[in-house]
Each structure stands twice: as structure tokens, then as C-alpha cells.
Computed example of a mutant assay.
Amino acid sequence: MTGPHLVYVADPMCSWCWGFSPVVAAIRARFGDSLPIRPMMGGLRPQTTKPMDAAAKRTIRTHWEHVHEATGQPFDWAFFDREGFVYDTDPAARAVVIVRRDGDGPALDMLRAVQAAFYAGNRDVTDAAVLADLAAAQGVDRDGFLAAFETEDAKQETWRDYGISHQAGIAGFPTLLAGEGDGAPYAPVTRGYQPADAIIPALERWRTAVAG
């Protein structure tokens, strides 16, 4: 990308990214097209195959409780009544990557839709049909989405995101990076959750310095 922009490294099934969702919305509302945000999938638990056991549920529930307390984001706790759920984050990430082909804005909208469906709606976002419904609600052709979802190209594109994130040393989400374009290095805005009233003033100072 050219010019000042942000790269948002996230995972649709990362609870702290759900907590960060209103912050992303606030950034978009404040800066609009003057500071585009490129979503990149970090890969939280791609291709997990083991169903969640009682210990895993306790651990994840603790994370959700912390996010809810810190951010006020809603959660449907009935999720923990599910039996045999496999917490594979790859399908949801691939869904965002497919929609990203239509632009970063639609991808950010899809990311939020998947997050809301999973955390607040207790929907199974490892299911391609559920993801297709969410994409269709964003104006994406449902049949076209499903056709793309199973392609090797979509799978490899998603794993390229994971690889770039890993090579950049990004191990936690959300991570927000600021770049000036033209090959300039990226600078971290935040590694982990920060509220909007901490992020936006920092971005305003950076934008002023870049415009300098």
C-alpha cells in the first residue's frame, strides 16, 4: 500500500480482537479513507482437530470473562454448553480473506460480522454454510463465496497471511501497525488491546508527523 495506512493483524476467533472491534470501528469513523486499514489474518489455532475438553473450556471462558470486563463486549456463554466443538480458526480467517478480495473495507465488515456471530450469537463460524450466510448479509454472492471457499488458492492466500505475521514476529492479537508506504518500515501502534481513547490520539500525532 502507498501512503499512510494501518495493518491490523487479527483472528476472527480471538476474543481480545472481538474486544478491539469497537476500537477499529472508532478508527474508521475518525479517519475514514485518509487512513486505510488492511486486515491480515494472524492464525490463532488454524487446523486444530481436537475437540475442546473441560480444561480448554475453562481456559477460554476465563479469557472471555477478562475481555468482557475490560471492554463490555457481549458474549453468549451458552457456547460452553457445546459438546465436541473443534476450535479451528482457519475457516473463519479464510472467509475474511475471500471477502478481502473485494477490498479492505468489506473485509473489516466481514471480520466484525464473524466475530459478532461467534461471540455474541453463538453461531458455529467453523461451518462454511454459516460463513456464507454472513458473507451474503454483507452483500457478497453466496454461491460465489462457497465456490471460492474450497479452492486451494483461498487456502494458500490465508496461510500466506499467517506466514507474513509469523515472519514479522507477531505472536499475539490484536496487533496494529502503522506504515507510511514506499517501503518504509512499519511501527507498532499497539500489541494487544488498548481503548480507543489511547489509540486515536496516538494516530493523530503520527498522522501530523507524517504530514509534517
Rank of each mutant, 00 (worst) to 15 (best):
I170N: 00
I170C: 01
I170M: 00
A171D: 13
A171T: 15
A171P: 03
A171G: 14
G172V: 06
G172E: 04
F173S: 01
F173P: 05
F173Y: 14
P174T: 01
P174G: 04
T175R: 01
T175Q: 01
T175W: 04
T175I: 08
T175A: 02
L176V: 07
L176P: 06
L176F: 03
L177P: 07
L177F: 08
L177M: 09
L177R: 01
L177A: 13
A178G: 07
A178F: 12
A178K: 00
G179A: 09
G179R: 03
E180Y: 11
E180N: 06
E180T: 11
G181I: 10
G181V: 04
G181K: 02
G181N: 08
G181Q: 07
G181R: 02
G181W: 09
D182F: 12
D182T: 11
G183A: 08
G183M: 02
G183D: 03
A184K: 09
A184Q: 10
P185C: 09
P185L: 15
P185A: 13
P185T: 07
P185E: 11
P185Y: 06
Y186S: 06
Y186A: 12
Y186E: 11
A187Q: 15
A187V: 15
P188F: 12
V189M: 08
T190S: 05
T190I: 05
T190A: 05
T190V: 04
T190Q: 06
T190G: 04
R191E: 13
R191P: 08
R191Y: 11
R191C: 09
R191S: 12
R191D: 12
G192S: 03
G192F: 00
G192P: 02
G192R: 05
Y193W: 09
Y193F: 08
Y193A: 03
Y193I: 05
Q194R: 10
Q194N: 07
Q194S: 07
Q194H: 15
Q194E: 14
Q194M: 11
P195S: 03
P195W: 05
A196V: 09
A196F: 00
A196C: 04
A196D: 00
A196E: 08
A196Y: 09
A196R: 01
D197Y: 08
D197L: 08
D197F: 09
D197S: 12
D197P: 14
A198N: 04
A198R: 14
A198I: 11
A198T: 11
I199R: 10
I199T: 11
I199D: 03
P201N: 12
P201I: 13
P201M: 11
A202K: 15
A202I: 07
A202Y: 13
A202T: 15
A202P: 12
L203Q: 12
L203G: 15
L203R: 14
L203T: 12
L203Y: 07
E204M: 10
R205L: 14
R205K: 13
R205G: 11
R205F: 03
R205S: 14
R205P: 01
R205E: 11
R205C: 06
W206Y: 10
W206S: 07
W206T: 10
W206K: 13
W206G: 06
R207Y: 06
R207C: 14
T208M: 09
T208Y: 04
A209F: 13
A209K: 13
A209T: 11
A209L: 13
V210L: 10
V210C: 05
V210W: 06
V210H: 05
